[in-house]
């Protein structure tokens, strides 16, 4: 039995490639864009930019703290640095450097974080950061973006190049369905209502937007009409879109590849509780570390796939 999906795909690709391709295109448009990477150029897909603009690219070696400081310094004189490494090393390892030299100093640095979340897979919990969105969204001045597929990541990369101010851009490693259009307009801070519904709203970010699209079709087979909203920008959060949808549906589910503590769901709960309290169920990692495994196995074991979104939606509905 096949599902009647509202969004489909013919190709899969990693979101990090969307970043790499967007970075190259942004670099061609704007000569002030420079790149930095801490010994993960291949993994971050920054090699094409490095090859085309060797003078504007800086291999920093395995020294992320220095990389963040360098990026902050390069903005003085008008450069727009894109500093790339794994999400774990781009946040937790260098939190104070980001806090003081980038966020507090309000520098135009783009922190580009790959291999975020459980879907990093076999490398295990040391590398599977699930706390990065929380850490980054707590920083004043910081914009936090977590796109859902190759096309959206590419569009987001181009958009942050034109945005003035510090940005955290989070993407990942696994090959993932490309289900959003190549020519999409990416508006920072503007949620995208992908599927109209009336019974429950699913707010999803990153890879889990695809799981939400699948969950919507599964719910529809049971006569439940879910609204799916793609929250690519965690901060600033599109509170208006959230309130408008929940006003209609009366309950919601948040879905993210991140700890429940401090994640997107927390931000949505804050919005709801301030303006119009409504039942909210969380799909996310429940206060635990990850482990080695394939992305699919991990999303299943930690309760982050479409089946879990369906369960959460029904739970939210029952609480209305």
């Amino acid at each position: 039995m096949s599902l009647d999906l509202k969004f489909t795909y013919t190709e899969k690709k990693d979101t990090r490639s969307g970043f790499g391709d967007g970075f190259l295109e942004a670099g061609r448009k704007n000569p002030n864009i420079v790149g930095l990477c801490a010994d993960l150029i291949g993994s971050l897909k920054m090699g094409a930019f490095q090859k085309e603009f060797p003078d504007r690219f800086f291999q920093t070696g395995i020294a992320e703290a220095n990389m963040i400081g360098l990026a902050a310094g390069m903005t003085i004189g008008g450069k727009i640095p894109f500093a790339g490494t794994f999400a774990n090393f781009a946040t937790g390892r260098v939190y104070d450097q980001i806090r003081q030299s980038v966020a507090y100093s309000d520098k135009n640095v783009k922190i580009c974080a790959s291999h975020a979340g459980l879907t990093l897979g076999e490398d295990g919990a040391t590398h599977q950061i699930l706390e990065d969105l929380g850490m980054m969204k707590m920083l004043p001045h910081m914009t936090v973006i977590n796109p859902c597929d190759y096309n959206q990541t590419k569009a987001a990369t181009l958009a942050i190049a034109e945005h003035e101010g510090p940005v955290y851009l989070r993407f990942g490693r696994p090959s993932w369905p490309i289900f959003t259009p190549a020519d999409q307009k990416f508006e920072i801070g503007k949620a995208w209502k992908m599927i109209d519904g009336k019974d429950v709203t699913i707010f999803a970010t990153g890879h889990l937007v695809w799981e939400a699209v699948v969950a919507e079709a599964m719910l529809r087979e049971e006569g439940i009409h879910a609204e799916v909203i793609n929250i690519h920008t965690i901060k600033p959060l599109d509170e208006e879109a959230i309130m408008e949808s929940v006003k209609k549906t009366g309950c919601a589910v948040s879905a993210e590849e991140h700890q429940i503590n401090g994640g997107l769901g927390d931000s949505i709960a804050q919005t709801l509780s301030r303006h119009n309290p409504a039942p909210l169920e969380y799909v996310g990692v429940n206060d635990s570390f990850g482990e080695s495994g394939t992305p699919t196995q991990l999303l299943e074991k930690y309760g982050l796939n479409a089946e879990n979104i369906v369960k959460a939606a029904k739970k939210a509905l029952a609480r209305k």
Partner: peptide, 20 residues
């Protein structure tokens, strides 16, 4: 041009500015 106080960060920032 940049906040400082949490030690150890300035040399990196200055290097970035020098390369810019």
């Amino acid at each position: 041009r940049v906040a400082s106080g949490s030690l150890g960060q300035g040399l990196s920032v200055a290097l970035g500015a020098a390369q810019a």
